[in-house]
Amino acid sequence: MRDWITATGAESSCTEPGSPWENGSCESFKGRLRDECLNKHLFTSRRHAREIIEDWRIDYNLNRPHTSLDGLTPNEFATRSATNHKMNRASL
Rank of each mutant, 00 (worst) to 15 (best):
M1P: 09
M1H: 09
R2A: 08
R2Y: 01
D3K: 08
A7W: 07
A7V: 04
A7L: 08
A10I: 07
S12Q: 07
S12I: 06
S13L: 11
S13N: 06
S13V: 14
S13Q: 04
S13P: 00
C14N: 05
G18T: 11
G18L: 04
G18H: 07
G18A: 11
S19D: 09
S19C: 13
P20V: 11
W21H: 09
W21R: 05
E22M: 15
E22D: 11
E22V: 09
N23R: 15
G24N: 11
G24V: 13
G24E: 08
C26F: 00
S28Y: 03
S28R: 15
F29Q: 08
F29R: 03
K30G: 00
R32Q: 13
L33M: 10
R34C: 04
E36F: 11
E36R: 12
E36W: 12
C37W: 04
C37Q: 03
L38F: 10
L38Q: 05
L38E: 06
H41I: 14
H41T: 15
F43K: 00
F43L: 09
T44F: 10
S45A: 05
S45F: 06
S45I: 04
R46S: 10
R46W: 13
R47M: 03
H48A: 06
H48W: 08
A49G: 05
A49K: 13
R50E: 12
E51F: 01
I52N: 07
I52H: 01
I52C: 01
I53Q: 00
I53K: 02
D55G: 05
W56Q: 04
R57F: 07
I58T: 14
I58V: 15
Y60N: 03
Y60Q: 03
N61L: 01
L62G: 01
L62D: 12
N63T: 12
R64P: 03
R64H: 05
R64V: 14
H66E: 02
S68E: 12
L69D: 00
D70M: 03
D70R: 07
L72E: 03
L72M: 11
E76S: 03
E76F: 00
A78K: 07
S81V: 02
A82C: 05
A82G: 04
A82K: 14
T83C: 02
T83F: 04
H85M: 10
H85S: 14
H85G: 00
K86A: 13
K86H: 08
N88Q: 12
N88R: 15
R89E: 11
A90G: 13
S91C: 04
L92P: 02
